[in-house]
Simulated scan of single mutants.
Amino acid sequence: MKRIADLRSDIDAVDAVRATLDDAAEIIAVLGDEEGAEAEADAMIARATRALDDLEMAANFDRPYDSHGAIVTIRAGAGGTDAADWTQMLGRMYLRWAEGHKFETHVVEEAPGDEAGLRSITFIVRGKNAYGMLESERGVHRLVRISPFDNQGRRQTSFAEVDVVPEMEEGDAGDLEIKPDDLKVETFKASGAGGQYVNKTESAIRIYHLPTGITVASQQERSQMQNRDVAMNILRAKLIQRAREEQEQKLAEIRGERMANEWGSQIRNYVLHPYQMVKDVRTNVETGSAQAVLEGDIDGFIWPYLQNRNKFAPAGGGDAA
Rank of each mutant, 00 (worst) to 15 (best):
G195Y: 12
A83K: 02
E253C: 02
Q291C: 01
A16M: 11
I74V: 15
R92P: 01
E110K: 15
V185Y: 11
R154W: 09
A315Y: 03
S147Q: 09
N151S: 15
G132S: 07
H106K: 04
E257S: 09
L118E: 09
Q152S: 11
I178K: 05
A243Y: 03
N308L: 05
Q291P: 00
A51H: 04
N284Y: 04
A116H: 03
A5Q: 10
D181N: 08
S223W: 07
G80Y: 06
M232R: 06
S158W: 03
D54A: 14
T157C: 06
D10Y: 08
K189D: 01
N60A: 02
N60D: 08
N151V: 13
V140T: 06
R18H: 15
V230Q: 11
D6W: 10
R75F: 01
I121Q: 08
M44D: 14
G80F: 10
V271N: 12
A24C: 04
Y305R: 11
P180C: 04
P211K: 05
N233D: 10
A320Y: 12
V72K: 01
A37G: 01
S223R: 00
W97Q: 02
H106E: 14
L210W: 02
A78I: 13
L55E: 13
N310Q: 14
A116D: 05
I205S: 04
D319W: 10
S120P: 01
G318W: 14
I234L: 08
I302H: 01
R206Q: 02
E38K: 06
T212F: 01
A290F: 04
L134H: 03
D280Q: 05
R18V: 12
Y305G: 00
I298L: 01
I207Q: 12
D15A: 12
L134A: 07
I254E: 13
D319G: 00
M232S: 07
A25N: 10
R119Y: 10
D12R: 10
A16H: 05
F159V: 08
Y270G: 04
G194R: 05
K128C: 02
R96W: 09
R96C: 12
L52S: 04
A5G: 00
K250T: 13
A98L: 06
Q241D: 15
N199E: 15
V271M: 01
L251G: 02
G113P: 07
G153M: 06
G113N: 05
P180I: 05
D172M: 07
